[in-house]
């Protein structure tokens, strides 16, 4: 049956409407979870608040386990789902830059826009910088292109690289997530609580 748009169940013209609805819900949940607060976001780096890690790990493992069962039941064809290709070097460098911006600004792109929506001025400056960065990168892409495309692996799956079954990997990932929950809860109990 799914994915609905590539299979023609829903017309492709609806994709932006659906994206808007999903985006609004996503923003609502981010805001409701308190992610528009930069103190909560950077709490992950300083070790006093691991909500970000917990929320995203939970979302990932729930979606992953759900999708794999849906795939098995034939409700969704996972082979039709797009996933981005892997650029090893670009991912490492980009990840470092993003992490730096993350901890300096106290927002990640999505939560930054959430914070703009509730009227935070620092977030406004952050999002302005974000677009400036996008503009700068797009205009000078040809300078970085060699770096960007170096060690491009194409669309690879970790299960293929490791040679293990998808189910086994999913189980391992869930186990890691649960261990991370326990460990971060343990750390959080030992770190001086930050009130904000």
């Amino acid at each position: 049956m799914g994915p609905l748009i590539p299979q023609g169940v829903i017309d492709g013209g609806w994709s932006f409407v659906i994206a808007l609805l999903v985006g609004v819900c996503f923003g609502l949940i981010l805001e409701a979870s308190g992610f528009s607060s930069s103190r909560k976001i950077v709490g992950l780096f300083y070790g006093y608040d691991f909500t970000v890690l917990r929320v995203f790990f939970t979302a990932t493992i729930t979606a992953m386990v759900g999708l794999l069962y849906f795939n098995y039941l034939g409700w969704i064809d996972l082979s039709m789902i797009y996933f981005p290709p892997t650029y090893v070097l670009a991912a490492i460098i980009g990840g470092l830059i993003m992490g730096l911006g993350f901890i300096m600004g106290g927002f990640c792109p999505g939560t930054g826009i959430c914070a703009v929506a509730i009227g935070k001025l620092d977030a406004l400056a952050y999002v302005f910088g974000l677009y400036l960065g996008i503009f700068f990168f797009s205009e000078t892409f040809s300078w970085f292109e060699g770096l960007y495309t170096k060690y491009a692996l194409g669309q690879v799956r970790i299960t293929e690289t490791l040679g293990i079954s998808t189910g086994l990997f999913a189980f391992g990932f869930v186990a890691i997530a649960l261990v991370a929950f326990v460990v971060t809860a343990w750390i959080q109990r030992r770190v001086k609580p930050v009130v904000y």
Partner: peptide, 12 residues
């Protein structure tokens, strides 16, 4: 629950 469900995936 999630651990059990994930364990089920191994046998699919």
């Amino acid at each position: 629950i999630i651990l059990l469900l994930a364990a089920g995936l191994i046998f699919l």
